[in-house]
Amino acid sequence: MRKTVNWTATVLLLLGCTAIFFPLYMAVMIAFKQPAEMTNDILGALALPADWSLSNFAEAMRVTDFWHSFGNSLLLTVSTVLLAIFLHGLAGFAIGRSVGSSRIYTVIYLYIVSGMFVPFAILMMPLVKQTAQLGMANRLGVVALYTVFFMPLNLMLYKGYLTNIPLALEEAARVDGAGTWKTYWSVVFPIMKPMHATVAVLTAMSTWNDVMTPLVILSGTGQNTLPLAQLNFQTQFGTNYNLAFASYLLALIPILLFYLVCQKQILNGVVNGAVK
């Protein structure tokens, strides 16, 4: 049978793309315009700007202290991802390899995984008190909270991945005289590489876009993440929507670039995270 292209579906899907691109198109148009160009009709928002000047972006960077927030977001995301791969990988190994033979480990596994039922909004108030008491109402505290918050899903992912890996390799390493710790780093850790990618992608995207945790933990410390900066500078933008939209675009560009570069890993990671 000759394979024919389904043109109806192709055309419908192409038309549907306008729903995805329209808000982004509008954002770009407004970000490049000057306040005087913003008339009250639809064209005020959607027409092309008179000239493509980057001045709004430069001003938005200055007003919101862009590099500072960007640096914070990057620092929080990278530290959380590294810690997740290190700690959740080890936990997945220790707990995952013991669940079958030990009842205590089964209980521990279920205990941690059931943490998925506890959304941040429920823990928010006591956590704010607790981090303040521990002197952790800062970036370190946020990373610690993320490490705990993503633990249930990541542990489940690592454990699930390990069940398909035969014990024989670890036993071979043991016969060669390697201890468990060394076996993990030289044999198990490299094998889990596809899962590290999934964990990294899921953790990075959730951390990068998260608003609530930095909002309640970092408020009053003068530290902003990129989303938090948009929230905190909202009043300062006032009715200068052009400045505001330049700032929104600046906040979206890093994650869009990340998506462009790692699209395959992101799509795989997201499906793995949801389906496993």
Partner: peptide, 20 residues
């Protein structure tokens, strides 16, 4: 790839764009 874009964008900024 295109239809997945909304998922990678942060909810807050997307909210601000739609607010306008």
């Amino acid at each position: 790839g295109i239809y997945f874009i909304p998922n990678v964008l942060g909810g807050l900024v997307v909210g601000y764009i739609f607010s306008f």
